[in-house]
Design a protein around this nucleic acid. Structure first.
Length: 154
DNA sequence: GCCAACGTTGGC
DNA sequence: GCCAACGTTGGC
């Protein structure tokens, strides 16, 4: 199986690429969406590439690269009554929610804004450019990956 | 702050 | 199982 590619969204006020750079590796916890859960639990492999996307900021866009550092495992924050994303339906013996660990790779020399993604031929089918795209973990094709990296670093 | 899109919940 | 109401996301 060859390396695959993903886009992962985060609000930088909560967790930014700089935060990931400081930590090195971070568990991507708190995702409570079944499509995103399925991708993290079933599809992501160690070494897969991640476009790191900042949302709910001005401007939103891809700010750098990360990679999958650990494959899917149960999200411990779902079991913790004090955690923000606690889910009593998820139990350790039958977990509902999964996460992966993400490792910092590099920051782009400049942000590739959402507006730029929308204006770039070849990226029309990226989920993130589609209206009201709420999925916080999205697959990216190899061509889309190359185009975005070339925009930032080309 | 607005609001469209979308996922989830709950009444029936 | 349907679907209206509701909550959340996230761009603008």
């Amino acid at each position: 199986m060859s390396r695959r590619y993903w886009l992962m969204k985060t609000e930088p006020s909560a967790f930014s690429l700089d935060d990931l750079k400081a930590k090195g590796v971070e568990p991507w916890d708190g995702v409570r969406n079944y499509q995103a859960r399925n991708l993290m639990r079933d599809e992501m492999r160690v070494g897969d590439g991640v476009l790191f996307y900042h949302s709910s900021t001005d401007p939103p866009g891809v700010v750098g690269l990360a990679e999958i550092a650990r494959e899917g495992y149960p999200d411990p924050t779902a079991f913790d009554p004090k955690a923000a994303h606690y889910d009593p339906k998820s139990r350790p013996e039958a977990p509902t929610w999964y996460l992966v660990d993400v490792r910092f790779v590099r920051a782009f020399p400049r942000i590739v804004t959402l507006a730029e993604l929308k204006a770039t031929p070849g990226l029309e089918h990226m989920k993130v450019v589609q209206r009201a795209s709420r999925l916080s973990v999205q697959p990216v094709t190899p061509d889309e990956w190359r185009i975005v990296v070339a925009l930032a670093e080309g």
